[in-house]
Amino acid sequence: MSKLSHYDEAGEAHMVDVSGKTATRREATAGAFVELSEAVLAALPQNPKGNPLEVARFAGIMAAKQTSSLIPMCHPLALSFVDVAATVVAGGVKIEATAATTAGTGVEMEAMVAASVAALTVYDMTKALDKGIRIREVVLLRKSGGKSGDYVRSEV
């Protein structure tokens, strides 16, 4: 097993110095699932707060740009692309968030934060109808670029 890069020899957390890494195109996609009852799914188009899926999309995009403010050891990145899709599927809303950059470090955290905040926004927009809403399976789906190479999540 590799050692965790955010810890020094004394076990203290620190930000990794990526200044020596080559800037390459890096992209990551993360997903989340918001489990909703049939009643809440049926009510989505009539939400008095607006379209929850569109608000969630914008919230996810904004969140990706704030990742380094939320996660202490993340580097601020100039994102070249962020996209969030929120799709109604059987049993809830499927979220997919993609972030891309050309940098010396990856964008997995930006994609994960975007998916998480989009899912939380769906919750916020629908919680008046059901307090039992569950957010599940916030996961990295795929990534490309960087020293560790490509990754595609295998379905479990």
Rank of each mutant, 00 (worst) to 15 (best):
Y7P: 01
A78I: 11
N47A: 15
S19M: 07
I71K: 02
V122R: 03
R57A: 04
Y7A: 04
G50A: 10
R142M: 03
V34D: 07
A115N: 12
V34A: 07
M62S: 14
A99E: 02
L4M: 15
L44W: 11
S144R: 15
G11D: 07
R142F: 03
S148C: 13
Y123F: 15
A100P: 00
T29F: 06
I61A: 07
V138P: 04
G31L: 01
A56F: 15
L120N: 14
V34Q: 01
A118I: 13
D17V: 10
A30G: 08
T67G: 07
I133A: 05
Y7D: 01
V138A: 01
H6R: 05
A10N: 13
T101Y: 00
T126P: 12
D130S: 13
G31A: 12
K147N: 07
A128V: 14
T126V: 13
E9L: 10
L36I: 09
P45W: 08
Q46F: 15
M125S: 09
L4I: 14
S154Y: 01
T29E: 08
F81Y: 07
A43G: 09
R134P: 06
G106V: 03
S148M: 08
A64E: 06
A103T: 00
G60R: 03
G106T: 05
Y7C: 04
A78V: 07
N51S: 12
